[in-house]
Amino acid sequence: MAQCVAAGEKPEFLFWVGCAGSFDDRAKKITKAFVKILNKAGVSFAVLGAEESCTGDPAKRAGNEFLFQMQAMTNIEVMNAYEITKVVTTCPHCFNTLKNEYPELGGNYDVIHHTQLLKQLLEDQKITVEGGTFQGKRITYHDPCYLGRANQIYEAPREIIQKLDAELVEMKSCKSRGLCCGAGGAQMFKEAEKGDKEINIERTEQALETTPDYVAAACPFCNTMMSDGVKNKEMEGKIPVLDIAELIATAEDL
């Protein structure tokens, strides 16, 4: 972003990469796939790089409102300084926080999730995916809580899967009744409380019941949880867990 400003450019989107997308090896692949698509489609965007910092979502859900607001206000100061108007992110947690919780603290942006942008790019025929690798394959889609129930985005990712000419198969709990992967509310960063099962195993079992060729996710944390679940069921390598962006990038052979 700093380079763009120095060069006098004003990119259309700020791509908010998020901590997982920046540091987590699995999530970095999602970041790269999404960037390849953006480049292919000729979308003008920039990232904050080292000027980006955690949105504060896990701190807020863990109960640390102070740390959350510190993070939020710092980020807002940076984004407002760059006069950011549109933000796109691959992480539903960042998406939800930026979109819903930043306005009250002075950060007003038009925030969209990458599945929404990808759907738009497909509709505008900036990218095409028909008849690719996934033709006729069974894909089941796991709804991230912070995209679905929290923000009512159920259809954009599903429409993309259908555009891949793949067969979308639904799990027994999906959309507004979708089962959490187990990572939300800062659970990603701690061991689960005592119980008789891990949540991601329960969800993976629901996914495997649909006998899919692929499990699709739209959140880096869900991706980790589902990948771990698939590994636990010794299906690793047989049933890949892929982000919606990765599905498109693979179909387009990027």
């Binding site: 089962l179 409380e193 119980g195 949540i199 329960e202």
Partner: peptide, 9 residues
């Protein structure tokens, strides 16, 4: 999800 997997919540 917590209750479904046997947690106290």
């Amino acid at each position: 999800p917590a209750n479904q997997t046997g947690k106290k919540l």
